[in-house]
Amino acid sequence: MEKRIRVLVAKPGLDGHDRGAKVVARALRDAGFEVIYTGLRQTPELITEAALQEDVNVIALSLLSGAHNTIFPKVLELMKAKKMDDVLLIGGGVIPDADIPGLKAAGVAEVFTPGTPTSDIIEFIKANVK
Protein backbone atom coordinates (compact mmCIF):
# COMPACT_ATOMS: atom_id res chain seq x y z
CA MET A 1 0.00 0.00 0.00
CA GLU A 2 1.21 3.48 -0.82
CA LYS A 3 2.27 5.45 2.22
CA ARG A 4 -0.27 8.14 3.14
CA ILE A 5 0.83 11.76 2.89
CA ARG A 6 1.26 13.28 6.35
CA VAL A 7 0.46 16.96 6.87
CA LEU A 8 1.01 19.21 9.88
CA VAL A 9 -1.50 22.06 9.88
CA ALA A 10 -0.08 24.75 12.13
CA LYS A 11 -1.15 28.11 13.54
CA PRO A 12 2.01 30.14 14.18
CA GLY A 13 2.10 33.40 16.10
CA LEU A 14 -0.67 34.79 18.28
CA ASP A 15 -3.49 34.73 15.72
CA GLY A 16 -6.64 32.99 16.95
CA HIS A 17 -8.53 32.68 13.66
CA ASP A 18 -8.58 28.95 13.07
CA ARG A 19 -11.71 28.46 10.96
CA GLY A 20 -9.60 28.20 7.82
CA ALA A 21 -6.97 25.96 9.38
CA LYS A 22 -9.60 23.56 10.69
CA VAL A 23 -11.59 23.48 7.45
CA VAL A 24 -8.40 22.79 5.47
CA ALA A 25 -7.30 20.14 7.98
CA ARG A 26 -10.60 18.36 7.66
CA ALA A 27 -10.66 18.58 3.87
CA LEU A 28 -7.16 17.12 3.71
CA ARG A 29 -8.19 14.32 6.03
CA ASP A 30 -11.25 13.60 3.91
CA ALA A 31 -8.92 13.48 0.91
CA GLY A 32 -7.05 10.61 2.56
CA PHE A 33 -4.10 12.46 4.12
CA GLU A 34 -2.94 11.91 7.68
CA VAL A 35 -3.47 15.28 9.35
CA ILE A 36 -2.10 16.64 12.59
CA TYR A 37 -3.41 20.01 13.78
CA THR A 38 -1.22 21.90 16.27
CA GLY A 39 -3.77 24.26 17.80
CA LEU A 40 -3.06 27.95 18.37
CA ARG A 41 0.00 30.01 19.31
CA GLN A 42 2.77 27.79 18.05
CA THR A 43 6.29 29.16 17.80
CA PRO A 44 8.40 28.27 14.74
CA GLU A 45 10.47 26.06 17.06
CA LEU A 46 7.43 24.10 18.23
CA ILE A 47 6.15 23.72 14.68
CA THR A 48 9.37 22.37 13.22
CA GLU A 49 9.87 20.13 16.24
CA ALA A 50 6.37 18.68 15.84
CA ALA A 51 6.95 18.23 12.11
CA LEU A 52 10.10 16.22 12.78
CA GLN A 53 8.52 14.10 15.47
CA GLU A 54 5.45 13.37 13.40
CA ASP A 55 7.60 12.73 10.34
CA VAL A 56 5.32 14.80 8.10
CA ASN A 57 5.71 15.43 4.39
CA VAL A 58 4.01 18.82 4.47
CA ILE A 59 3.77 21.77 6.86
CA ALA A 60 0.76 24.01 6.19
CA LEU A 61 0.89 27.35 8.02
CA SER A 62 -2.25 29.44 8.51
CA LEU A 63 -1.95 33.07 9.51
CA LEU A 64 -4.35 36.00 9.33
CA SER A 65 -2.66 38.52 11.59
CA GLY A 66 -0.26 40.05 9.09
CA ALA A 67 2.83 38.62 10.79
CA HIS A 68 3.59 36.22 7.90
CA ASN A 69 6.66 38.11 6.67
CA THR A 70 8.29 37.65 10.07
CA ILE A 71 7.06 34.19 10.96
CA PHE A 72 7.11 32.17 7.71
CA PRO A 73 10.81 32.88 7.02
CA LYS A 74 11.62 31.84 10.60
CA VAL A 75 9.97 28.47 10.07
CA LEU A 76 11.98 28.07 6.86
CA GLU A 77 15.24 28.93 8.62
CA LEU A 78 14.60 26.29 11.26
CA MET A 79 13.64 23.75 8.60
CA LYS A 80 16.98 24.37 6.90
CA ALA A 81 18.84 24.11 10.20
CA LYS A 82 17.11 20.81 10.93
CA LYS A 83 17.80 19.58 7.39
CA MET A 84 14.12 19.09 6.59
CA ASP A 85 14.76 19.37 2.84
CA ASP A 86 12.16 16.75 2.06
CA VAL A 87 9.31 18.67 3.74
CA LEU A 88 7.03 20.88 1.66
CA LEU A 89 6.06 24.21 3.27
CA ILE A 90 2.82 25.89 2.21
CA GLY A 91 0.91 28.78 3.74
CA GLY A 92 -2.47 30.45 3.67
CA GLY A 93 -4.52 33.26 5.13
CA VAL A 94 -5.01 36.98 4.63
CA ILE A 95 -1.74 37.53 2.79
CA PRO A 96 -1.47 40.43 0.33
CA ASP A 97 -0.50 39.49 -3.24
CA ALA A 98 2.47 41.82 -2.99
CA ASP A 99 4.01 39.69 -0.22
CA ILE A 100 3.70 36.38 -2.06
CA PRO A 101 6.76 36.63 -4.36
CA GLY A 102 8.98 37.37 -1.35
CA LEU A 103 7.61 34.43 0.60
CA LYS A 104 8.07 32.11 -2.38
CA ALA A 105 11.61 33.32 -2.92
CA ALA A 106 12.30 32.48 0.73
CA GLY A 107 11.12 28.92 0.10
CA VAL A 108 7.36 28.80 0.72
CA ALA A 109 6.14 26.46 -2.03
CA GLU A 110 2.72 28.07 -2.41
CA VAL A 111 0.50 30.63 -0.68
CA PHE A 112 -3.28 30.14 -0.73
CA THR A 113 -5.39 33.24 -0.24
CA PRO A 114 -9.08 33.74 0.65
CA GLY A 115 -11.53 32.09 -1.73
CA THR A 116 -9.25 29.17 -2.64
CA PRO A 117 -11.15 25.88 -2.88
CA THR A 118 -9.70 23.18 -0.62
CA SER A 119 -9.46 20.96 -3.73
CA ASP A 120 -6.72 23.28 -5.10
CA ILE A 121 -4.69 22.74 -1.94
CA ILE A 122 -5.16 18.98 -2.13
CA GLU A 123 -4.06 18.88 -5.77
CA PHE A 124 -1.07 21.10 -5.08
CA ILE A 125 0.13 18.85 -2.28
CA LYS A 126 -0.31 15.68 -4.37
CA ALA A 127 1.63 17.22 -7.25
CA ASN A 128 4.46 18.69 -5.20
CA VAL A 129 5.03 16.45 -2.19
CA LYS A 130 8.65 15.38 -2.07
Binding site: G13, L14, R41, T43, S65, G66, A67, N69
Partner: peptide
Protein backbone atom coordinates in the same frame (compact mmCIF):
# COMPACT_ATOMS: atom_id res chain seq x y z
CA UNK B 1 10.00 37.40 21.94
CA UNK B 2 6.53 35.93 21.33
CA UNK B 3 5.30 39.37 20.19
CA UNK B 4 7.83 39.47 17.34
CA UNK B 5 6.09 40.38 14.08
CA UNK B 6 2.69 40.93 15.70
CA UNK B 7 3.16 44.39 17.25
CA UNK B 8 0.65 46.90 15.90
CA UNK B 9 -0.57 44.52 13.18
CA UNK B 10 -4.26 43.86 13.88
Amino acid sequence: PISEGEVGKV
